[in-house]
Structures are given as structure tokens and as C-alpha cells.
Design a protein around this nucleic acid. Structure first.
Lengths: 148, 148
DNA sequence: GATGTAAATGATACCACGTCTCAATATGAC
DNA sequence: GTCATATTGAGACGTGGTATCATTTACATC
């Protein structure tokens, strides 16, 4: 459950392994799936109430910069949810009706990433792929959606 | 520039074609690339100062629900940027150092989409693909990043 | 193990994004 | 033109996230 390699990535990038960072990362690793910032704040507080809000948000930003987690929108323009990127990448399908998310693994984007690195002179470390559509339950419920 | 089909999609979905909605959509269509909510608010205000903030945010939510635009995070956990999904899909590279975005067209995800539709019984209408990495300028600037 | 230094922390004040409420208005159907 | 209803605009409000800064912690060096 507690994967030391992610802490190593922090240290290797020149960041100190502090208690706040360890707890925040552990919270996200323990909870499978998407988490809102409020859920993360609650979970961190319940493990160590001495950790301040500011440090939690700072750590979230740091983990985002290191492509360990990624903020995404599942619904409207409300708060984002943070999702762990196990090997630097994450893929899911979002139902635009009920906002259910379906995660899947295989994306076959390796060759595209290589092509883009050559084409734009960038070094890619991860990616997020989101599909939008109507899930089986919603289409069976007879919900009418717009055609593209 | 002004694509009437998107207004049709609003009406077909049962929404009224009001001035606020027309102006907001037009602002986003006119401005190529990503826009923050602040930029959208400014642009809308300069075209018609009588349009209220609430209506702008309501319209952004509505357009998101219809998969016409999509909020994404380019930087940390700050404000999202909204991006038009021309044919239901959008792809870009985000530099995790300077937050510059590079957009590209070809993604080759058609076959994956078909496979997912069969596998999960969903009907997909669009997708967003984000790559993260270090852009050429930042890596030349000697910024050290972590190895995956 | 002790010491030093810079990074990181926690507390709080602070700000802005986005939401809610509600009377007034515009839209589209008839 | 008239009507019912969705939508609006104004502003107060809540809350998520940030900036500041003195204090503390992690880690390297000795």
C-alpha cells in the first residue's frame, strides 16, 4: 500500500521528505479513485491534526508538478478531484449524464508520445485521457443526448 | 467564426437562445485556445456590460454539460481554463514548469474509442487528451526535473 | 551525535472564484 | 399581442485556495 518509490521521486527531485508530504501522499495512495480537496483535507486531519491546510495544498501542487497526481473535473465548474497517476498516466470515461467514471488501463499512446517528443522538442512524463459519453445505465434509462 | 450549429445544439437540447448564452459562446469561439474564467468574464463584459457574472458561470456549466467546452487544469490547483472541443475532442501538451500549452490535432484514438464502446457498453461523444512534460524552452533553461 | 542552513511548515489573514437568492425580464409558443 | 416559464442580473454570501512570516524540521557536514 505504501509505495516507497513515490517518496523517492520526491527526494530525487530535491524535495525534503517531511511529515506533511508523507501523510498527504499516503492518504491519496490509500484511497483508490478520485478525491476532492475537501476529502483529502479531512483524511489528512484525521491522521495528523497538526498538519495545516496550506501544507496540504502545497503538497497537492507539488505532487501535480511531479505528475504523481492530477486534478481533473468530473462535473461542472465546481471543485476538482485529484487522481493518482500510477505510472504517470491515467485514463477514464466520464458519463456526462450521471458523472460516473469508468477507469481503464490500456491506452496505446506510447508511440504517439514518442512522435510528439520529436515533433515539439518536449520531454513527456505522463498523460491523462478522458472520454466523454453516455454510460450503459443512462442510455438504457432512455436519456436523450445531443448528437455531435 | 460564428458557428450556428452550436447554438442549434443548445436549442435542440431544450435551452433558450438568450443574449447571455450567445455572447459567451461567441467569445469562446472567437478566442482560439484556452481561456480562464477571468478572461471570459472580461471579454463578455467588454461586449455587453449588462451581462452578469452569474449568467456567465451558468453558461459555462451548461456548455460543459453539452460537451461543447471542457474545463482543464494547466497549472496547479488554481483556476481552470476552458477550451473549446471543436469536434468533441481536444489534445494538448502542458509544460509542468511554465504551464505553456501546445495543442496538436492528430491523436489516432478512433479505434480505441470503438473498442471501449464495445467493452463497456457506452456511447462516446468526445475526449480530452493531455500530455505532461517539460517544454523545450524549460529544459534548455537547465531546469532539473524528475526522471520517471 | 552535534551543528548549521535552507527548505518547509503551520497559523492566520486575506482574496477571488463561484454560488445562491429573488425580483425583474426576455424567450418562444400560442 | 399575450402568456407561462425559463433565464437573467444584481449583490450578498460562502468557501476554496493563497500569501505572509515567524518557527520548525530535514538533511548535509563535520
Amino acid at each position: 500500500m505504501n509505495n516507497p518509490s513515490r517518496l523517492d521521486r520526491l527526494r530525487d527531485a530535491g524535495y525534503k521528505l517531511t511529515n506533511a508530504r508523507t501523510v498527504v501522499l499516503n492518504v491519496i495512495e490509500t484511497h483508490e479513485g478520485h478525491m476532492t480537496s475537501a476529502e483529502i483535507l479531512d483524511a489528512v486531519a484525521s491522521r495528523d491534526s497538526s498538519i495545516g491546510r496550506a501544507s496540504v495544498f502545497r503538497t497537492l501542487d507539488l505532487l501535480t508538478r511531479l505528475a504523481i497526481i492530477r486534478p481533473t473535473y468530473t462535473a461542472g465548474s465546481a471543485t476538482p478531484t485529484y487522481v493518482l497517476m500510477p505510472d504517470g498516466h491515467h485514463h477514464h470515461i466520464v458519463c456526462v449524464q450521471c458523472h460516473q467514471t469508468i477507469e481503464f488501463e490500456d491506452c496505446g499512446l506510447g508511440s504517439l508520445a514518442e512522435r510528439l517528443e520529436g515533433e515539439f522538442g518536449v520531454k513527456l512524463t505522463g498523460h491523462l485521457l478522458e472520454f466523454y459519453g453516455i454510460c450503459g445505465a443512462c442510455s438504457e434509462a432512455g436519456v436523450v443526448d445531443d448528437e455531435v
